[in-house]
Write a protein that binds this DNA or RNA. Structure first.
Lengths: 372, 372
DNA sequence: GCGGCTGATGTTTGCGTAAACATCGTGTAC
DNA sequence: GTACACGATGTTTACGCAAACATCAGCCGC
């Protein structure tokens, strides 16, 4: 821990030998007013100590070739002694890039957003980029606009937006020029670059699974209106039923939360002919399971339930939940790749990339009861 | 978008007339070699267009007093026309601060970390600070060291670490000087500034609640060894029992995941004398509930279960989970406050701040069965 | 032996901003 | 009416870095 305590800038005389003695003059003489204690050593300091030009320090710092091995070693030693760290502000100013990606998202309350964010951060780090978080408290236009106006001053080279793009457009966002944007949870593939889970494919798999088990039709516990993902799942659910010649029951809506799933579940439990429910996410499925349990409808004997997301807890539900697995890590990875490509001006400017899903069969689905 | 294309730097003499008409000239004449299309307007560009000095633009930009209202308006108009955005790299370089806080954390798989991070981001935004994420894939020393070495070059003024500080120490971290650190999930209050949930208080409340219900003792499903929070809960659990004159049963460990709670639950279900279990988090409690259910032990009639965290889903478990509510938002808020105070050199350098918990009674706890 | 090349290094310059200092009217006190 | 304060603005400078260019040995080929 001692390394943290050290204050390399004020070392008494160690730097004097070996090279330049000019430092002492600088250290003391000037007006002692507020000394300002230079916080970090600069390239110039290192250069002085190593007896080279600052440009050579720069070359070493950036790992350029063309520096004599002996010189390089001297410089490295000087850097170490002074505790030199390149100043990223100066670097960014000079290079014109921050090596940082901004991520705008709503509250991190949904598993999907968190997982995606995590993957983005990891992938970005891998590429030498940092990730700056721009939280938006509420999905209102004012909030979104606020986030973007913060962004305007922010040190980012690109932005990944994890939310329905309509809010973005509606907020009359004015992005800093040359800042690339990639969007998740949106259908704006013709205006933006979009990366998303294959909502439709996953939904189709879920519905088909239930129909294959023998259910006459499938009810749907949908997500909130604002969400594109929710909309997409609802549309796909309806389409899959129609395609199979079934009649879609009325839609029941929740807001992604388990609590809303519970409330919707109480409603669904009242329908005796409801033998299969496709919940738009696992949390709502959880609430649904509780409601069904309370109303004495057994899962999966009386009612089959299928979720979406495959959160880690899904396998521990009662009963373990059959669900559609989303590969959030892949989504995050692709976001970073897409945004970097856009920055480097390779790859398509717009269009949607879909990440496939996978149906995970557990114990919450079964054939319908003999005669309901 | 046209504002982007414009190359304000090369304007010949437009500044002369209030709102120049000389723009056309700039587009053609200059050497067409890679034009480099200046990406953004600088203060100088705005100054030229507004017919003032760049310093005045700076004053307007920073909202300083002492600028004539008319002048200010001119400047603002010019800014708007050029789509001017202050360059944060230059600003950071000049001011010597980035207005950014780095957050180091393990994978965002635990609710607590995510909630805390979210609160940190929100509070920081409130204070005009951005948050940069430094994900650490695995809690190994090498990984932690890697994160910190990335950090060394990173544009942050302070760091909040959400993890057991031992890993940090062990990684022989060398922090940039003058970068303040605040830590969550740690007992290093004497070396660092620590903000944490009152683990002991929450645990005591949980244990007492169960004892008050009439249980002879309370079993404990603990978290992983590396975690300070887990350790603290385990210690407090044992202490609370001893204090009440009870004999602590053997400790059962999980790794925070529901799956591990399930495995541990199978084990616990085998003990007929186990009538009350305190799980170190809600996810493990979920798995525990499933295991008990599978083994035919009813909750709460046969076994009482209590969790820790109060994740949103807890109220939808079967049965709804009694648990200890953690105020992650407050933890995050206090982290930001502490770190900003340290930067401004007010407030104590080290020491621990505890955030109180609250017991949330739901349906998973009840008096023990008559004669077990 | 000379021109030119290569590798290693130094020098100059400018990125965009804002602190510090300088200037310049205008009014106000005496 | 001179002195002086004050408000409004302009000028200079430095933040730390790295691209572009300059220098300067040593070495090669002919």
């Amino acid at each position: 821990m001692d390394t943290v305590e050290r204050a390399p800038a004020n070392l008494p005389g160690p730097a004097a030998e070996a090279a330049g003695t000019a430092r002492d003059a600088a250290g003391d003489a000037p007006a002692p007013k507020r000394t300002r204690a230079r916080t970090t050593a600069s390239m110039a300091d290192v250069a002085r100590l190593a007896g080279v030009s600052s440009q050579t320090v720069s070359r070493v710092s950036n790992g350029y070739a063309g520096v004599n091995e002996k010189t390089r070693r001297q410089v490295l030693a000087a850097m170490k002694e002074l505790g030199y760290r390149p100043n990223s502000a100066a670097r960014a100013l000079k290079r014109g890039e921050f090596r940082t990606i901004g991520v705008i998202t709503f509250t991190l309350s949904t598993t999907g957003n968190v997982r995606t964010l995590e993957a983005i951060a990891t992938s970005a780090a891998h590429e030498g980029y940092a990730v700056t978080l721009l939280p938006v408290a509420l999905p209102t236009q004012a909030e979104v606009r606020g986030a973007f106006s913060r962004l305007e001053e922010l040190a980012v080279d690109a932005v990944i937006v994890i939310m329905e793009v309509h809010l973005l457009d509606a907020a009359t966002v004015q992005l800093p020029p040359h800042v690339q944007v990639v969007v998740v949870d949106s259908d704006a593939g013709d205006h933006y670059t979009v990366v998303d889970t294959d909502q439709a494919g996953g939904t189709r798999a879920a519905v088909r699974h239930l129909l294959d088990l023998g259910h006459r039709t499938v009810w749907h516990l949908g997500g909130p209106e604002g969400s594109f993902a929710a909309q997409r799942r609802t549309d796909a659910w309806r389409a899959a039923l129609v395609e199979a010649g079934r009649v879609p029951p009325p839609l029941v809506r929740g807001d992604w939360s388990a609590e809303s799933g519970y409330r919707a579940g109480l409603e669904l439990a009242a329908h005796d002919d409801c033998t299969a429910v496709f919940a738009a996410n696992d949390q709502m499925a959880l609430g649904l399971l509780r409601a069904l349990h309370e109303r004495g409808r057994r899962v999966p004997e009386d009612v089959s339930v299928i979720g979406f997301d495959d959160i880690p807890e899904a396998s521990s539900f009662l009963p373990p939940l059959t669900t559609v697995h989303q590969d959030f890590a892949e989504v995050g990875r692709l976001c970073v790749r897409a945004v970097l490509r856009k920055m480097r001006q390779v790859g398509p400017e717009r269009g949607t990339t879909l990440v496939p899903t996978r149906l995970v069969r557990r114990d919450s689905t079964a054939p319908p009861p003999e005669h309901p």
